[in-house]
Amino acid sequence: MKRSLFILLSFLFSACSVLSQNSPGDALTGLWLPSCGKARVNIFKKEGKYFGKIVWLREPNNELGKPKMDKNNADESKRSLPLLGYLLLKDFDFKGDNTWEDGTIYDPENGSTYSCTIKMIDSNTLDVRGYIGLSVFGRTDTWTRIVIKK
């Protein structure tokens, strides 16, 4: 009896672990291109939440030929952080209906962080809406999924 229970629990544990990697919310993960085309963002899942990191910049260097830093950040201690590798999207929860909410998006061009919701229009298109307080005070940007040519 004990042996059967142990086997059952082992299977359940494994099955849950595998399922957690394939939850519907994971459709968000992958490489995305914002409409401006200036950056590529890799969205990944960590500890049950979704994050997006800048992994490529069309113009990685500033006018002095040095890597672009987060020079507009209101927090002076973060101005020396490179934009490449910067967490643009943070703390998104999957809410069902192809929607991820409760996260934030950072705009390096003005150093502001906005509330954000993400809606998947189809498997390769996202509507990313940053807003202040109420969703009406916001802007939607459409991102497209990309793959790197080998």
Partner: peptide, 8 residues
């Protein structure tokens, strides 16, 4: 993540 990308 570098190199030429194509939209899926």
């Amino acid at each position: 993540f570098a190199g030429e990308a194509e939209v899926s």
